[in-house]
Structures are given as structure tokens and as C-alpha cells.
Nucleic acid binder design. Structure first.
Lengths: 216, 216
DNA sequence: TGGTTCGCTACACGATCGTGTAGTACGCTA
DNA sequence: TAGCGTACTACACGATCGTGTAGCGAACCA
């Protein structure tokens, strides 16, 4: 994601595609709009990427490689989180959006992240009966932070893709993950409610509400 | 979301729309496919809802009202989480997807949830320097669980929209929220890294990696 | 019993989609 | 200088999109 206009046309197309795919979804962004945003003809887009699917795949590959590269450059410490600098926020957001729209590369990435997460989990003292579910759900939650960029931006009053807002967001996630949000009583109460729900299987599945923020 | 086929045509259209909007996104689902899935003509869809945007808005309204109704029916305990029974999972998933695609109702819902979350937070002993960011990020994370339904289903090997998988998912979220995932040292280290990042503002913003699962 | 409304279908309309084709300008190598 | 591959544009193609219109049959009320 370079800002200059003296880039290869191919790179400009790719950047514009990532931006529009992120903003409108894969189906919502058109070849013509992407080409126009990149300042080229739609034919050139086709010349370089073959098809819309080819363009999307190239974007996936680029985003994945670039994020990996940014990660490689900085391996300060290891624990939990997986967020990158604001520069990579847009790439992350695109990748997760593409994942939601059925990207094969994205699915493979998520699966690999879950596998790696299980290894990470094994090295910690965290308690869980279901390591796979633990890391998968945790991963899904973290990705939610990127998918909800627009909503977080609205709630915080500043773009979480820019430095100040980004710092607030990551700081909040650190606070969230560094303390138990549920008391042991609340957790146990929730577990019991889950057991009740599970044991009523094949029976009537009445709605059930997890101990929770009152309104969502 | 009723399963019967002896529903009003209007209700069948709405249910089919929610299913297809969820699966393919708003732009990806077509009027004709929705009508076909509901077993009616596309003209009838237009007759009842006026336009695609009207249909989407009706779906938003319905999903929001139904979820609220399901919540009203069960107010067992209050704490944090906000998940509903599997029955409502599809509605939640639709609503969040619609939110991502720019639903005004969804945005209002998220804003209201943040406001309510701040009140909830004030009644707890949780520590935070930025209550708004805390609840907003927490909310985004929870929504991520619904958006990543397909990925969680793949990772767990069973549909998290059905009871067994759903229980595993919520149980994992309870485990995640009932213990600190970061040691105080890790948290402080992360905070310091954030400070460094913030203080280097307007300077070169080098990529930075939050203490994290190694690969995502 | 006649008229009006309502649920519903069939079909045609412009617009726009992704794609295909032809052709131009430019730089390379022989 | 001739030949050729590459970057790039212009334009037309079928398909499909959301939408508009006309009309049918049953229900309801006068």
C-alpha cells in the first residue's frame, strides 16, 4: 500500500482494488471503478490480472505476503494479540474482508493461525477444556476488531486506522486481555447455563442469554 | 426465522433474504435468487418491499426486533458476553454482516450498545483508562465471533450455528473472558511499545507487532 | 352481483456487469 | 531497420442486474 502515484500501473491497480474491495466487498466493487480509481482503463486491469477473480487472488497474495513481511521485521516479544502498525491495518482489514467473502487463501491463513495458536496456547498457563475452540474463538474476536473499523472509528471519534485512534484501540485490547472480565461466579454461572442448554438437546431449544452486556 | 413452509410469502421472502444476504453479502445476493429461494416471483418481492434497499431495511428491522424479543424473554443474569441461543445466531450473523455493509440501523445499534456498555462497565471493577474504547473494542470482538461463523465451523469441525458447536464456542468465550490472557509483564511491555509508537508520531511509523499469537 | 383491493405472475426496459477483441505506441533485440 | 513482445486503450458482446408495467384470480364489501 504505497501512496505515490509514480508506481507501476499494476501496483496502482492492486492498491485501488484492495481499497475498494475493503470498502464495498468483493461483489460490491466493480472492475470499472477499480480501474478508474487507479487511473487506467479496465482493459489494462484485465491484461494484468486476467479476471476479477485473478485480481482478487493477487490482492490476497500481496496482502498476505506484505503482512508476513512486516511481521518478520519486528519480532519483539511473543504473547497474544497479533496486531500490526496502522500501516498494516488496511491490509489486515482487506484480508479479513476477503476471508469473509470466501477467499481460499484467507481460509488457509485462518486454519494455519489456529494451528499455530494451539502451539502458543500449549506454552502458556491458560486454562481451557477445548484448546482448539479457545484459540479459534480468540482469533475470530481479534479479527472482529479489524472488520469493525468503521464502527470503532465512529465510536471513538477518530480513525482507528490512523495512529492516535489505533493506539487507543490496541491499548483497549491490551486492557481487555490483561484482566478477567468475568468473576469466577459469573463464569461458573455461564458454564452451568451452557450445560443446561446442551442437555436440553433435541428438546425445545429455548433462547438463552449469556451473562452479558445488557443490550447486545 | 421460521422453518415452516406454510408461512406468509412475505415472511418467506424475508427469511430467504436474510439467509442469502448473510451468505453472499448485500451486494452479492440478487433479488431474483432471493425470490427463487422463497419460491415466489421477483415481482412479488418488489410488491411487498418496494426495492432491494427496502427489503434489506425490513430484514434489519425484523432481525433487530426479533433478537431484542428473544433477549427480553430471558434476563437470567447480567455480566458480559451478549450471546444468544443458536436460534438467534443466524440473526446476529445477518445483522453484523448488514452492519458491515453499511446498514444505518446496524450502526445505530452498535452505537447504542457502546453507550449501554459504558454504563455496564461503570458498575464493574474493571480497570481502564478509556472506557469508551474498552467497550467498543470489546463489542467489536464479540461481533467477530458471529462474522467468523464459517471459519469457526471449519476449525471446530462442526457448525457453530447448531447446538453442540454453539456450546463449544460460547464455552470458549467464557474461558477467554474469565482469565487474564496476558501476564502483567506482557501487558506492560505492550503498553510501553504503544507509547513508543505514539511518541514517534509524525515521524516514521515503522511496523510494530503487538505481543501476540506468533502467526496472525 | 358488481367493483375494488390485494396477492401474485409474466415480461420488458435501460443500466451495468465481467469479459472478449482489435488495435496503437513504445522499447527491445537481431 | 525489421520484427516482436509488452503496456495500454477503445469498444462491442452477451448476461444479469434492479426496476417498471400490465394483467390475472380470489377475497371482500357495497
Amino acid at each position: 500500500m504505497s501512496s505515490d502515484s509514480d508506481l507501476t500501473a499494476r501496483a496502482r491497480i492492486r492498491d485501488a482494488a484492495i481499497a475498494l474491495f475493503t470498502e464495498r466487498g468483493i461483489a460490491g466493487a466493480t472492475i470499472r471503478d477499480i480501474a478508474q480509481a487507479a487511473g487506467v482503463s479496465s482493459g489494462l486491469l484485465r491484461h494484468h490480472f486476467g479476471s476479477k477473480e485473478g485480481l482478487r487472488d493477487a490482492c490476497d497474495e500481496f496482502a498476505l505476503a506484505r503482512i508476513t513481511q512486516l511481521q518478520m521485521a519486528f519480532t519483539e516479544s511473543q504473547a497474544l494479540g497479533g496486531a500490526l502498525a496502522p500501516d498494516a491495518m488496511a491490509l489486515q482489514q482487506y484480508l479479513v474482508r476477503s476471508l469473509m467473502d470466501g477467499s481460499p487463501r484467507g481460509q488457509a491463513m485462518f486454519a494455519a493461525a489456529v494451528q499455530g495458536g494451539e502451539r502458543w496456547l500449549a506454552g502458556t498457563k491458560l486454562e481451557t477444556d477445548d484448546p482448539r475452540a479457545f484459540v479459534a474463538v480468540l482469533g475470530a474476536m481479534k479479527l472482529g476488531m479489524f472488520l469493525m473499523r468503521d464502527q470503532l472509528t465512529a465510536a471513538l471519534g477518530e480513525d482507528v486506522g490512523e495512529l492516535p485512534g489505533y493506539v487507543r484501540m490496541i491499548r483497549a485490547s491490551l486492557e481487555i486481555f490483561s484482566q478477567p472480565l468475568l468473576t469466577p461466579e459469573q463464569a461458573e454461572q455461564g458454564m452451568k447455563a451452557l450445560d443446561r442448554l446442551r442437555d436440553s438437546s433435541t428438546g425445545e431449544k429455548g433462547p438463552w442469554r449469556m451473562p452479558s452486556m445488557p443490550e447486545d
